[in-house]
Amino acid sequence: MELTLDEVRHVAALARLGLTDAEQELMRDQLSSILGHINALNELDTESIPPTASVAALQNVWRDDTVQSSLPREQVLMNAPRQNEGCFEVDTPLGGEESSS
């Protein structure tokens, strides 16, 4: 299971990671090794096993619509490298507008 450098660069771009040439090589090797490991699953005969999106034998696990208290703001922000006006501060992302769901 050998990833190409182009695939590594594509995944890095999606994750907004800038990788040096050497890091790209390193990531190719490591990711390839991980995928190779997972790929071992393909050796299993799954002919008689129905496909599923969930391995837990659970469904309809939900809660009532009630409000409980949130974390104190000091705790919410305690690990933020930069804080400002009670918010996390970041450099404005390219484009400058909100992502749209």
Binding site: N84, E85, G86, C87, E89, V90, T92, P93, G96, S101
Partner: peptide, 24 residues
């Protein structure tokens, strides 16, 4: 059904750079 994102408030820092404040 899905979930909404947080909100970004855009500001200009004292050094003139563009910063965004994240409210979750």
């Amino acid at each position: 059904i899905e979930e909404d994102t947080g909100r970004l408030l855009h500001r200009t820092a004292s050094d003139g750079s563009d910063i965004s404040l994240v409210d979750l």
